[in-house]
Design a protein around this nucleic acid. Structure first.
Lengths: 250, 250
DNA sequence: TGTCGTGATTGATCTGGATCAAAACTGACA
DNA sequence: TGTCAGTTTTGATCCAGATCAATCACGACA
């Protein structure tokens, strides 16, 4: 199913007046290793904030690409929608991560990006980013590393989808989430999932019932405690064992 | 969404006329849209050629990253190997494609690259590439598009691994190869595979026996003719049907 | 407060692909 | 020319996960 034409409105941010010059740039992924002046330059580029309500679209597949989006807060999924209505989730994304890298290749977004909770993003006009990255080599270098990291991440998911069993996949998924929460200052062992079992299943190449059973199995073994969307990891070491000895999904 | 979507553009460098330093630059993926002088500059960077014998390694996971590699001729696979011996082929690569993008993120190669036939690559020192891409914006732009294309390609593989049945996966794989051969001036319907059934299986998330059976099934239906590694596509339309839902084909 | 719709769990059954096994084929090389 | 190791095909069986189905839990809202 192709997106309708009205979706362009979703990218129209002209009505938004940013109140913050740099959109809390320091919280973003980009300015790593930049000096004050460089952050100032970058801040002039990343001037537009945008809020997306839970369930709202940041962009849809087929939309013209103009900007990358840095997530300031919230939680989003990216997915492709197939003709029969099924969706394949290609990733879950949280604060500090960069969305839209896939769209650079054809100047068209190749997936939908949907907020799984109220979210806020900073818009980064890509042409401007390329422009100033010529002036600030460390920014260019960092941007290249971020694109490369996305490739490495995808290879990890390919390994997971191509060779892991259901329980291994779920363990890997939970540990990945756990680590990302930890890095952001949240508990690594106690968190709420923002996505449904079906979305997890889509991401992991499993049916929702299989995901549910895998949760129950891990709970029966006292490795985790599941209460609907709330997860507590009781024994992270044993959860790592479940994953097998792989370091994939970064 | 299928891997290698806009390869046509990617390789259309017929408009370029240049005698380049040593490496037949016009065969490469990089110089798209550059003028004479720019190609000269790029040629100075891409000066080092390297041959790899069948079975030899271009690089191994863990090796220090210094250069990208543009394939001049031959055929390679990239794969990630886990401690337990679990292996996943992450891609097959042919003339004009760029290897090593995954290594930028950590300055370390994250996968092995192995020649499946005698191959020749041009080494592109990454630091120099970044340097001159500051001077040649169209080169930078093109490089970004290539990285993005790799991400799109990987998402296509994730979709395949996450939601397709064995026969659909093989059909998708054959059609992808077919198109890439066509773009390079070879027959789209008559070609030799360079990889084993096991390697195909690893790439497609299947066991080698399943791959073999899927080949036999397609042959029984007169869609293809299989003679060991030699493949002839007799009915490309029906092969496309086998691929199922076509929303992932561009 | 009750109703409705969505999401989650659990049980029963089915099946596509994995696994195990054997035979045939290929190509490299002595 | 024969040998041998690696590759491919095919058959028989098994099982992890899909599918089908029932029930439960919970939040939104009239």
């Amino acid at each position: 199913m192709l997106p309708d034409t009205s979706l362009q409105n979703h990218l129209d941010i002209s009505h938004i007046r940013s109140s913050c010059a740099s959109c809390s740039l320091r919280e973003l992924c980009l300015p790593v290793g930049l000096n004050e002046h460089e952050i100032q330059v970058l801040g002039d580029v990343v001037s537009h904030k945008r809020k997306i309500q839970r369930g709202g679209y940041l962009h849809r597949a087929g939309a013209k690409f103009q900007s990358l989006f840095a997530i300031r807060s919230g939680f989003l999924k990216t997915c492709v929608l197939e003709q029969d209505g099924r969706q394949q989730v290609t990733g879950f994304h949280m604060t500090g991560e960069l969305l839209g890298l896939d769209a650079i290749s054809t100047d068209t977004h190749t997936c939908d990006a949907v907020a799984l909770e109220d979210s806020e993003v900073c818009e980064i006009p890509f042409a401007k980013l390329e422009e100033i990255s010529r002036i600030i080599p460390s920014l260019m270098r960092h941007f290249h590393k971020m694109m490369s990291r996305e490739i490495v991440r995808d290879h990890g998911v390919m390994l997971l989808l191509g060779s892991m069993k259901a329980e291994e996949r779920l363990a890997t998924f939970l540990l990945n989430l756990s680590r990302r929460f930890l890095v952001r200052g949240y508990s690594e062992s106690d968190f709420n999932l923002r996505m449904t079992r079906e979305e997890i299943g889509s991401y992991l190449g499993l049916k929702l019932e299989t995901v549910s059973r895998a949760f129950s199995k891990l709970q029966d073994e006292n490795i985790i405690t599941v209460d609907n969307k709330h997860i507590r990891i009781n024994d992270i070491a044993r959860l790592r064992m479940k994953m097998g000895n792989s370091s994939c999904i970064t």
